[in-house]
Design a protein around this nucleic acid. Structure first.
Lengths: 122, 122
DNA sequence: TCATTCGGTTACTTTTTGTAACTTACTCTA
DNA sequence: TAGAGTAAGTTACAAAAAGTAACCGAATGA
């Protein structure tokens, strides 16, 4: 990530950046965090928890997160169709890290909001 | 973040989301990580490390990160002007958390790339 | 027969990003 | 003394991503 990598390298030679930008994207993070809290969620339920996300973006992100191995998609041939999303073991290991970050945010967001306000007055 | 918050709340009532979306944005994260590695960086140096970022976005992000209290900006009245960016104590405490995430990514990005490839074959 | 359900997709608009040229004000070089 | 270079950005314009809202198919229940 740092000193040992030639900073002139194009980003496609830095998979960490690529992977991180998917996994820590705002919507992806929320999806993963909610799936960490509720082991199984269906599309519309997930959409309610990840408040404000659109069908389009939710379905895009779910595909990418599935491709990257964080989540699993199980479709049941019922009518109407039922689809269940859940974390993989890999996703579970990630959500633990992510949760630490979320907790830091929970603790520190008041400071940030205070900073913002102070900054606005300058 | 979770069960104790009514998921119907509009996002503007969830400061954690707001703050997190700024701080864990791809470019913001890279800026903060590099400033964690080099205690002081000037605009153009930072731009080289955060490979691929444009002047516009770099200057936007620096302003937001300054407003939120993660970084400090010091301008020296020289010619040509010299501007030094560095982490605040608050930013320093954040970069430690962020670094854990980056390390997880460093370790696990090969798995993600492998998953992606497998997924592509399905 | 007609509205409802679920898990999306599609066409279209708006917002965000990226690109690249330009700026300011002074100094160094030819 | 004309011209180029420098640092830290800004600006106008183009491209990409995200948001919006209507629509889909197949079956079920009223």
């Amino acid at each position: 990530m740092f000193g040992h990598i030639d900073y002139k390298n194009p980003p496609e030679l830095c998979p960490v950046r690529d992977v991180m930008s998917v996994a820590s994207d705002q919507w992806s993070a929320l999806i993963i965090l909610w799936l960490g809290y509720f082991p199984v969620l269906r599309f519309n339920k997930l959409k309610k928890f990840v408040y404000g996300i659109s069908n389009k973006v939710l379905s895009q992100r779910l595909k990418v997160l599935e491709a990257d191995g964080y989540i699993q998609r199980k479709a049941f041939a019922e009518v109407p169709i039922r689809v269940e999303y859940s974390l993989t073991d890999f996703g579970q290991s990630y959500v633990e890290k992510l949760l630490e970050l979320a907790e830091w945010m929970q603790t520190n967001s008041p400071k940030v909001l205070a900073n913002r306000e102070k900054y606005g007055l300058l």
